[in-house]
Nucleic acid binder design. Structure first.
Lengths: 161, 161
DNA sequence: ATTAACGTTTGGAACTTTTCAAATATTTAA
DNA sequence: TTAAATATTTGAAAAGTTCCAAACGTTAAT
């Protein structure tokens, strides 16, 4: 089992970095990484032990990960601990969280487009033009994203059945 | 021009928040927001004045934004200041930066897939399975992303010519 | 050559985020 | 109903990030 310990520590580190790159708490990545490679659900204490951290932050981050739908609590009969496991299609769910943030950009573009429309200057015209471009960009992105999500749903079933 | 000042401050704030949501320095968003709605290139001092901040951080962040290809320096004859403007297709470029980060995930999945392949336990099988799923997900994402980028290139030309 | 105009770098202050240890709350078993 | 096991919250410490002011370097006009 020696190799497995190394692998765990490495994957946990890589996920931490990945999450951090997206502006998320690295501990989120550490927990997600750990759970992704754990066949069995892990209790808070299991996580504490493997991550060598105190329980406070792990409890908090698990709650946030559950809110985002990335991990789930599992009930294990006869055991009163909370057990966690990676959610089904966790990659799809993590992706969805990212994409949702980009949706804001459509709203922003629309907001300033309409503000510029009620103004009247050479500069207002330029702003309108820019905001139209921004709106088009993120709308098209959204469209293609939906196509991807559909395609993945299909492929995911194919791979996991 | 009163309305325009409001609009500037608002858009700057919205972009700051947007950038911050992606784990980037909010000042990046402030500068990008300002430049996106500025028809004329802006000097460092112009930016300093409109953002009401000192020059140090603005100089640093402009360099980073230029490295990422989001803004460009413009040469204005007979003026020795540096002028900046939003890059052409800045939205596309910002998106590309995000997507590049996700590409790492393919490498991570491949790394642990091959590590798990050289191991031999029930758990190694599970890890292999998970990493295959991860690899498939991000490869499919990449594929669809390429389609989007192509479609946007076309639409972008159509909109800006 | 000197000076003025500008951009960059740096050290430290202010602020924000993350973590820990301990206190508190909650659940369940006896 | 109590005690034990567990999870959550909290306040303070540590670490990390961002910002400013000032020093420094560079360029170009005189």
């Amino acid at each position: 089992m020696e190799k497995n310990i190394d692998l765990t520590q490495q994957i946990v580190a890589d996920f931490a970095e990945g999450y951090s790159n997206f502006g998320l708490n690295p501990l989120m990545g550490r927990i997600v990484g750990l759970l992704i490679i754990s066949k069995e659900p892990q209790s808070l204490d299991d996580i504490v032990e493997q991550l060598e951290m105190s329980k406070g932050p792990i409890s908090q981050i698990c709650r946030r990960l559950k809110e985002r739908g990335l991990i789930e609590k599992v009930w294990i009969p006869g055991d009163r601990k909370d057990y966690y496991q990676a959610a089904d299609d966790i990659f799809g769910k993590a992706y969805a969280n990212q994409i949702n943030k980009m949706q804001n950009n459509i709203d922003i573009a629309e907001k300033y487009l309409s503000m510029a429309q009620s103004m009247d200057s050479e500069n207002a015209d330029f702003i309108k033009q820019q905001m139209k471009l921004m709106k088009s960009f993120y709308e098209l992105m959204d469209e293609y994203n939906k196509k991807f999500v559909e395609a993945w749903e299909e492929k995911h079933e194919e791979l996991t059945e």
